[in-house]
Design a protein around this nucleic acid. Structure first.
Lengths: 347, 347
DNA sequence: GCCACGTCTGTGATCGTTGTCATTGGTCCC
DNA sequence: GGGACCAATGACAACGATCACAGACGTGGC
């Protein structure tokens, strides 16, 4: 393994000068700099991150606490973070977060200490867990919150505009001639559920239409199972909707299943829209129209927030979260509204 | 931050002695050991992993290369690895593997160097990628291969007995009275597909039954979409099977969807079995009977392999892979065979 | 010609831990 | 009683980088 000393010898300078070149420090003459660069090139030198961490506290790798990965959400954020880390030359350290079990603080402390973590991504639900954020401040770890329920005075937040996205979904359905639209709301504990439901209502208001009747709004919990139940409820009402907007893709997929189980066709009889663009969305039949969550952009933005933080201490944070740009992905599960309610064929 | 020197002063010994206590080294008198332990306790001392890595090359954290996470497989292994790491007091470092793109070697090198990685988990498909394994040997990184297609002479492998599991599935269906069983095979590039198909045949042979007719074996590719097509093919043959065994849960879920779309009931008309116990299995309706992959056990075993390796140099490897214990999870998608073929109701 | 000053570079200590070797003090045996 | 030997411990350097400070050199002003 070639060290900074090897490079120094080869370039005929002191290790310190090499270090200066490495860190783009002031006052190294152009000639020396080039000579050092050439030496590094020749030897294929790469600085040791470990030694660097020891001296300057902090390894330059980003931490993430991953909880239950059963919903696709975490997985996708994780993947986006990996991509962003590659792009910005960092590394990702992952630890398990099992919620506030006894001793969680020690585990997090060890994670931060051992990994040399000075930058951390907090996902839901950790990003809304007060004691966690306190601990992070105590450890002097910089955090970026992904999709928190409430903004934080100390840490910047990154999210998406759930309300606007939901509005777009409904607009899309309006434009296809749908007027009777059902909505399957998400888990009531998630702020996103509320935002999406509000966006649903806002779209009606924006067109000057009356607020849809309560029977068209059914509570779900983001799971496939609750999606089935919600879809049943919507299809069983007297005048069933011609389109159903589920608050996430799992529930939308469940809706498709229930709709087809009744012998109805998508999108001819009922249009279905999801939210998230989860893997399942592109893979079921028919492929789901849905909102693509801008995970890549969010992850990249998080890295930028860290970089900005480093550039000018503490200037990275604003109280208004950064909203990444979503997009409506129109696939095969939405189509023109049929005239009249879909046929009812109970099972 | 309390250092080893602080502890040494407090205990009235030299840092080196504290180090000896830390590493359970020989020849420290019981009295001194206790005194040092007490001092560590009092000061809440935790050794610095970074300094340790610098001195002794290698951070004690385990690396994983994650590729495309769209199949649930990687996510679940990842989670299991996290759990196993918690249990064995390690940390997990993750990096993206994008296949053999230009420069992949440098990235892996950087990952290993910066993370102080001396132990690595290789998942499919990396675990069968020769150049990757060569690079690992060159970097002197110890690997454990998860579910490789072919064993490796240098690195131990951990997997599950796909063939036996498939046999158990078919036995289960036999015991419910099914004799005409369809099989949806997995992606032909995956060794697991072959093993599962062979297990399917073996179960017939074990009962002395004739090999099922070729029309009952349909090729899929592990995706939902191919599952739909395969299910269609099976349900469209003249005498449709009363049970369908899909090579993974996504295809099984797709099968359920197609079956129900045709107005047939599960398990009354058709039984469906999957493989993997993916999240979707417990969540769709009816819940899938499936094989639970023993991810937790595999991950734990991987850590044990590393530990054994450290204990006695090079003794950890055997050429026969360790097969973790799977289990058949019987849920609601399988039931007694109906007499005669299920009704055909085409769409 | 001398001193002050700015630019560039090197020396030595430092981060927290562990390996090498030397030291201490005691026990055993002849 | 003296040397051989062992167990227990400490002094010191090292891992690879960075930081504070000091030094070298050239330049300009008086």
């Amino acid at each position: 393994m070639t060290t900074i000393t090897d490079v120094a010898e080869r370039a005929g300078v002191s290790p310190k000068t090499v270090s200066r070149v490495l860190n783009d420090h002031d006052s190294v003459s152009a000639k020396t700099r080039d000579r050092v660069r050439a030496a590094m090139q020749d030897l294929g030198y790469q600085p040791s991150a470990v030694a660097r961490s020891l001296r300057s506290q902090g390894s330059g790798s980003v931490g993430v606490l991953m909880g239950d990965p059963s919903g696709g959400y975490h997985t996708r954020v994780h993947h986006a973070l990996l991509l962003a880390c590659v792009e910005t030359g960092r590394h990702l350290s992952v630890d398990l977060s099992e919620g506030p079990v006894p001793g969680w603080q020690d585990r997090v402390r060890a994670f931060v200490r051992d990994g040399g973590i000075r930058e951390m991504i907090l996902l839901p639900p950790e990003c809304d867990f007060g004691p966690m954020k306190e601990l992070m401040r105590e450890l002097d770890v910089r955090c970026v919150l992904i999709a928190p329920t409430t903004p934080d005075p100390y840490f910047p937040a990154i999210g998406m505009d759930d309300r606007a996205a939901a509005r777009e979904v409904v607009e899309h359905l309006f434009s296809l001639g749908h007027t009777r639209i059902g909505h399957i709301a998400g888990h009531p504990d998630h702020a996103a559920s509320t935002h999406r439901r509000n966006g649903f209502f806002e779209a009606y208001a924006a067109r000057g239409l009356p607020r849809p009747s309560p029977e068209l709004i059914v509570q779900g919990e983001f799971t496939f199972k609750t999606g089935i139940d919600a879809a049943k409820a919507l299809l069983d009402i007297d005048e069933p909707p011609t389109a159903i907007f589920a608050s996430n893709d799992d529930m939308a997929a469940a809706t498709c299943m229930e709709v087809q189980r009744r012998g109805l066709r998508i999108p001819d009889d009922v249009s279905v829209v999801g939210f998230d663009d989860a893997p399942i969305a592109g893979v079921i039949w028919p492929a789901l129209t849905t909102i693509r969550q801008p995970f890549e952009q969010m992850a990249l933005r998080a890295m930028q927030a860290f970089a900005a933080w480093n550039a000018n201490e503490g200037a990275g944070k604003t109280n208004t979260p950064f909203l990444a740009q979503h997009s409506l992905v129109v696939r095969e599960s939405t189509g023109p509204a049929r005239s009249g309610s879909p046929p009812r064929r109970k099972t």
